[in-house]
Amino acid sequence: MNRPGLKVNIAGVELKNPVMTASGTFGSGLEYGEYVDLNKLGGVVTKGVASIPWKGNAGVRVAETYGGMLNSVGLQNPGIEEFIKKDIPFLRKHDTKIVVNIAGKTLEEYCSVVERLAGEDVDLLELNISCPNVKEGGVCFGTDTKMVEYMVKEVKKIAKQPLIVKLTPNVTDIVSIAKAAEAAGADAISLINTLLGMAIDIHKRRPVLGNIVGGLSGPAIKPVALRMVYQAANAVKVPIIGMGGIMTGEDAIEFLLAGATAIAVGTANFVNPRATIDILNGIEDYIIKHKEKDITSIIGSLNK
């Protein structure tokens, strides 16, 4: 029997299948490459990288919650120079798309990473605009439509690769944020990043996380993520990369039906290091079982 077509297109970049890794959960693939054939993935989205090395937050950095987890890594990363020296050459040895997730504390910092990557062999950029803006006094770049528009416009001016803008779910109206990103020139939108949360150790009467608050991920956030992907997909024309609690092929299909062109797998990797491959197989099984022509006939195909 013929295998169904799984190719999808994100801003002119063809992925062999819609399964990507979620930034920060997969490093640059080096460690998980011992468990997963990276050549089988649609794309590897790397850990957020900044213009200079960031040390990250003091511990404790993780707390397990019911069906989820909180993290407060604080974007520890080796800086763009080290990343270009080590991570890009490693990933290039594989037949998968390279998506570089970009972190910054100011617009200038984001831009310097984007500029530095201009001549590098990477396929897509993912702008992580859900981290605190130091200049603006702790307000998130990604929570204000004006700020999103301004940021994306400035970054688009210098970006040499297509730009994915990654949205935070910690907003009242995801649709207006998604529209602002699209209007400013985003080539694709990915969502959701983690939901701000907290856990308390009742015996010590202290927050579990050293940072007090952290980002909630995993199956606990899936309904919220799915709702936001659905709303965003109905509001913008650019492709959507959906994520948030995807554990199985069925979960991934829900996101595709809701309108995501591709999906990313994060926390599930910690539960099962081969989660990406199992999810990919699950997607394929669904297409075969439902006698669909290929993956594209599923995307955004909810019955009205």
Binding site: G24, R61, V62, A63, N71, Q76, T267, F270, P273
Partner: peptide, 16 residues
């Protein structure tokens, strides 16, 4: 230290 991936990818288990 508290861990998630256990294989070095997620950076939640760090020590100074």
């Amino acid at each position: 230290e508290r861990m998630a991936c256990g294989i070095g990818a997620c950076l939640v288990c760090t020590c100074k």
